[in-house]
Simulated scan of single mutants.
Amino acid sequence: MISACFGDIKGEQYDTEQPKLELSAYFDGPIKAWGIIQDRSGNITTRFDVEIIGQWQGDQGILDETFRFYDGKVQTRRWEITKIDGLNYVGTAGDIIGEAKGKAHGNAVYWTYTMDVPVDDTHYRLKFDDWMWLMNDDVLINRSYMKKFGITVAELTIFMQKQSNEPSNPSNP
């Protein structure tokens, strides 16, 4: 209940922050990521690594994500994202209910969507309030607040780092 009382993050506070997050630039090419899920008490319940490959053509983007959980499970997701105008986006994926909606604010992007989340032998329909902030050194921090009936029941944190599109060349240090 307490987390519901703190109010929503206001995107306008990031409008002038740098470096500017342009989804089509950041999510074009390979990205490595590491994440955790915390229950509402703050306990880490899940750890995972993610490999993301993004491709953009104009205002259309595809993100292929492979989640490798530390318990051995693997999950994939394919996002199809459309840039509507300079600030607004919509996206779909197989496990997303309807469309995800996003808005850019300087160094941040806000996403909201609903997903059926598998937990053990059942699924929970949760609303995600998803914030991404671009940092220096091609690092992006993603915070997701998972809500049921408006109450935050879990939080997800992912640290991403954009990788070079160039193949490594061991003979050229």
Rank of each mutant, 00 (worst) to 15 (best):
I2K: 12
I2V: 13
S3F: 14
A4Y: 06
C5D: 12
D8L: 13
Q13K: 14
L21V: 06
L23A: 10
F27Y: 11
G29E: 04
K32F: 06
A33K: 06
I36C: 03
D39M: 02
R40G: 03
S41K: 13
N43I: 15
N43T: 15
T45P: 01
T46Q: 11
V50S: 03
V50A: 05
G54Q: 01
Q57K: 15
G58K: 03
I62F: 07
L63T: 02
E65I: 05
R68Y: 02
R68Q: 08
F69N: 06
Y70Q: 14
Y70N: 14
G72D: 03
T76I: 08
T76Q: 14
W79T: 02
E80V: 15
I81V: 15
K83A: 14
K83G: 12
N88M: 02
Y89Q: 07
V90D: 05
G94W: 03
I96R: 06
K101H: 13
N107V: 04
T112I: 07
Y113A: 00
T114Y: 02
V119M: 05
D121R: 08
D121T: 07
T122P: 00
K127R: 13
M132T: 01
M132Q: 10
M132D: 02
N136E: 15
N142Q: 15
M146S: 04
K148E: 10
V153T: 08
A154M: 13
L156N: 13
I158R: 08
I158C: 10
Q163N: 03
N169Q: 11
P170Q: 02
P173V: 12
